[in-house]
Simulated scan of single mutants.
Amino acid sequence: MFAAKLPFDVTRVPFYYGWAILLLAVLAMFSSLPGQTAGIAAFTQPLCAVTGLSDLQLSIAYLLGTATSGLVLPSAGRLVDRLGARRAYCMTTACLALTLFTLVKVLQQLKPAAEFATPVFMVTMACGFLAVRFFGQGLLPIIANTLVGKWFDRRRARAAALLGVVNGLAFSYAPKAMSDLVDLYDWDGGWLRLALVLGLGVTAIAWLFCRDTPEACGLSVDGEQGSTTTAQTAVVDRPATEAVRSLEFLVIALMLCAHGTVLTGYTFHLQSNGPE
């Protein structure tokens, strides 16, 4: 089912197929929006109304879900390596769609007890946020970057830059797009429509067009002729245990952590802070 030449042979495409893979990486980043803070922010006030939770209680549930997701993501990255990006792509979008659908149905069933079941809603939202963050904010970006890394070597910087530009534009517009979706269909209708698009549309596109590596398809990295082996870039390899203790890693990790923490907190409360 996931053979490299199914449903078609990419070697017959009249251009380097890595550029199609780059578009699929862009699609993966777009598909991650339901699990990104920029995509969840528009749902915070409707969720508070449905669950009876305060902004603080909902943000605590979000913190617990996000932190737990972050703890298990390293293992998920190794799972992507074992399964292959194509299989992981299909499974992740399907699981994210199922998570959104299940969360809507559970909250609809619990809604009549909103005034009396604050602990239940806290646990439910923490588990729901764990799942949407794991599949959306975590796995899909990992898959997108894995695809770019496997299909590009000399042109990797250009491909990553294009992915980053589109990613930035998408995330900038996401709060407005999600807010319009909530205005049109309410929070539950919005999530159900996103689940439908992800579960049927994106999953099908991933299966049809995604491929794990150029070598598996009989192509060479970057589309260079005369070799089907991976192009080698001069790098200094370090064991993971040594790398995580290096000053370079700690500086970059702390910088990204500080940036992500502040941006996530501000974006999550975008609706409640908006009127102010």
Rank of each mutant, 00 (worst) to 15 (best):
F152V: 07
F152Q: 08
F152N: 09
D153A: 09
D153P: 01
R155W: 07
R155D: 15
R155F: 12
R156S: 03
R156M: 02
R156F: 02
R156N: 09
R156I: 11
A157R: 14
R158E: 06
A159N: 10
A159H: 05
A159Y: 08
A160D: 07
A160F: 13
A161F: 14
L162K: 01
L163H: 04
L163D: 01
G164E: 04
G164N: 03
G164K: 01
V165G: 11
V165F: 15
V165S: 07
V165P: 00
V166E: 14
V166Y: 10
V166D: 10
N167I: 01
G168L: 06
G168D: 11
G168H: 08
G168P: 07
L169W: 10
L169R: 07
A170M: 08
A170Q: 05
F171H: 09
F171T: 14
F171E: 13
S172M: 14
S172F: 14
S172G: 08
S172K: 06
S172Q: 10
Y173G: 08
A174W: 06
A174R: 13
P175S: 13
P175H: 04
P175D: 13
P175V: 07
P175F: 01
K176R: 07
K176I: 15
K176C: 01
K176Y: 10
A177N: 02
M178H: 09
S179T: 14
D180R: 12
D183G: 02
L184Q: 10
Y185H: 14
Y185I: 07
Y185L: 08
Y185V: 06
W187V: 15
D188H: 14
D188W: 09
D188S: 15
G189N: 12
G189C: 03
G190P: 06
G190T: 11
G190S: 09
W191D: 05
R193P: 07
L194N: 02
L194Y: 01
A195I: 08
L196F: 11
L196A: 15
L196H: 04
V197T: 02
V197F: 13
L198M: 00
L198I: 08
L198S: 01
G199W: 01
G199K: 05
G199Y: 09
L200H: 03
G201T: 00
G201P: 00
V202Y: 01
T203K: 03
T203N: 00
A204F: 03
A204I: 01
A204P: 05
I205N: 02
A206T: 02
W207A: 11
L208A: 07
L208Q: 02
L208S: 07
F209D: 01
F209W: 11
F209Y: 04
R211E: 05
D212T: 14
D212S: 04
D212R: 05
T213C: 04
T213H: 05
T213Y: 11
P214Q: 15
P214G: 09
P214R: 13
